[in-house]
Amino acid sequence: MSVSVRRVRAIFRKELREYRRTRSLIVAMAIFPLVFTVQPLVAVVALAASASDSLAHEHVLLYMLGIPTLVPVFIAAYAVAGERQQGTLEPALTTPIRREEFLLGKALAALVPSLVVAYAVFAVFLTLVGLFAQPGVASALIQGPDLLAQVLFTPLLACWSIWVGISVSTRSSDVRVAQQLGVLASLPPVFIVVLISFNVIPVTPALTIGSAAALLILDVLGWRLASRLFDRERLITGTR
């Protein structure tokens, strides 16, 4: 199967143009990062230097993986259901575009802004911690394995959320329902991250890479699930 880069780019560019002009998506893309940044930032900045010992056994940074999980699912859940709701899906599907090209364009359009937001917020968070937190707290917080996990998990969790969001979106004709269900369905891998954050599962480079590999497999399965659920006939006629 050959994929036309031009058609993927057409969907990608169209999506970004639409997102820029869709207030609800802009608000969602702003609110989730704020929620996942402000509270830990305030907590960390307020910590005394004596707290650094206990902090060394926690993984507060991983809390921020909520951003690449929730931001893209919100966008991806809009991808197909939004088009159905607007009546724009049928004209797009009457063109020579393949299902895979359509989904790749949609997925990339959710992935790129999500990664930009997630990494940018992470960088800002680290900078502010470095500037305003007690020196001992900053060094206890910023640990090598956590940074590796953050860098690796961000795109992998985002991809998982995107495929979940698109899968839910293909089965829903209402954008809000799709977004709510999408958020719920994307949470299980986050549960693993939460266990790591609370040191239930100790973070080591080997565990991080192993988890990343598992997420990669989940991403591939998610892509296949989304492709399978994307049925032109059902999407157009609402039957079958």
Binding site: A10, R13, T95, P96
Partner: peptide, 8 residues
């Protein structure tokens, strides 16, 4: 523009 690209 979008559809011109979809039709290549």
């Amino acid at each position: 523009e979008c559809f011109a690209d979809l039709y290549e």
